[in-house]
């Protein structure tokens, strides 16, 4: 029971973190039609910025806020200097150009911070276990991640659905020429959306940083998961990304936690212990394959909103 609740919350937390990453990816794709592989690099930069700023200021929260600002600025600079010129080009061009950016960011990080990873220390008040049910404790920091991510998801929903900027963003997604013709500064809008996506990726990175080591290439594995999520959810759909992210986070975490035991009841011990790790890391890809067979456009295709 304890384990189940704990793993359930872990899955939720992981899923919400993936949502932050996938939301930026799907926003940028849905609105600018840009495939951004370097999104994972922004996630990595968020973590590195947070570790550095937290060490400078001596405060986790201050460091996190500064890192958030820094990734926002980095995203805006990146958009204005390089990615702006890719709009309207072939998707293959996007893949290649942003692949080049990944190489650049990984190497730049190695140059600045060195090849060894960094650690981000949590303040004491975030490390205490919190009782959530009678007899069941859960780390405060992971609860904080869940709360922050849910809050961001809510703000994102309200921002996109209920504000004027959100209205423009949605209009830009469905017909970019038209809203340009109506006198909206579409360039500025695109830059803002990209900056927002970068900040979301940075937020995911800096929140994940205290749990994992901050290291080069940390953005790449999770980027693939974010891709799986937006493919399952339907590219360009934030609602799809939210549901798919939680789904994927749950399946991945619960699969890793319980599959070995389940297999052990069916197979012999040795076979189970070799098959379980491979099978549990395959689970989400199998899920994706199934979704694609049933709904090739993802569960919530954006253009049918």
């Amino acid at each position: 029971m304890l384990l189940v609740v704990e793993q359930f919350l872990n899955g939720l937390q992981f899923g919400l973190l993936l949502f932050l990453l996938a939301a930026g990816l799907t926003l940028v794709f849905g609105i600018m039609d840009l495939v951004n592989l370097a999104h994972g690099s922004l996630y990595m930069m968020g973590a590195y910025f947070a570790a550095t700023f937290a060490a400078w200021t001596g405060s986790f929260l201050l460091g996190a806020l500064l890192a958030l600002g820094a990734t926002l600025v980095l995203g805006i600079v990146l958009e204005m200097s390089a990615l702006r010129h890719l709009y309207g080009r072939d998707h293959l061009d996007h893949v290649l150009a942003t692949f080049g950016l990944i190489l650049f960011f990984n190497e730049a990080v190695r140059l600045v911070w060195g090849p060894a990873g960094l650690a981000l220390q949590l303040p004491n008040w975030l490390t205490v276990p919190v009782p959530i049910l009678p007899g069941i404790h859960y780390p405060a920091y992971r609860l904080a991640i869940i709360a922050v991510a849910l809050l961001v998801a809510l703000l994102l929903y309200l921002g996109v659905m209920r504000t004027r900027i959100g209205m423009l963003i949605r209009a830009g997604a469905s017909n970019r020429e038209m809203i340009g013709a109506l006198g909206i500064n579409i360039k500025l809008l695109y830059t803002l959306v990209f900056g927002l996506g970068a900040a979301l990726a940075g937020l995911a990175g800096l929140m994940q940083a205290p749990i994992l080591t901050v290291q080069i290439g940390m953005g790449e594995n999770i980027l693939i998961l974010a891709f799986v999520i937006i493919v399952i959810g339907g590219i360009g759909s934030i609602r799809g990304a939210f549901l798919a992210a939680i789904f994927v986070g749950m399946i991945d975490t619960l699969g890793r936690a319980f599959l070995p035991n389940l297999l052990r009841q069916v197979l012999s011990g040795a076979a189970a212990s070799t098959a379980a790790p491979a099978l549990s890391s395959m689970l989400i890809y199998l899920l994706m394959a199934i979704v694609l067979v049933v709904r090739p456009e993802g569960l919530f295709p954006a253009n049918r909103r």
Partner: peptide, 28 residues
């Protein structure tokens, strides 16, 4: 499986399946 999709979906699907192969090899 992948050819059920097109465009950018196809790019990402093939990428994801290759990653799956990568993880399977890591588990051998």
């Amino acid at each position: 499986l992948s050819l059920r999709t097109r465009g950018v979906y196809f790019i990402m699907i093939t990428l994801a399946f290759a990653q799956m192969a990568y993880y399977v090899a890591s588990g051998l």
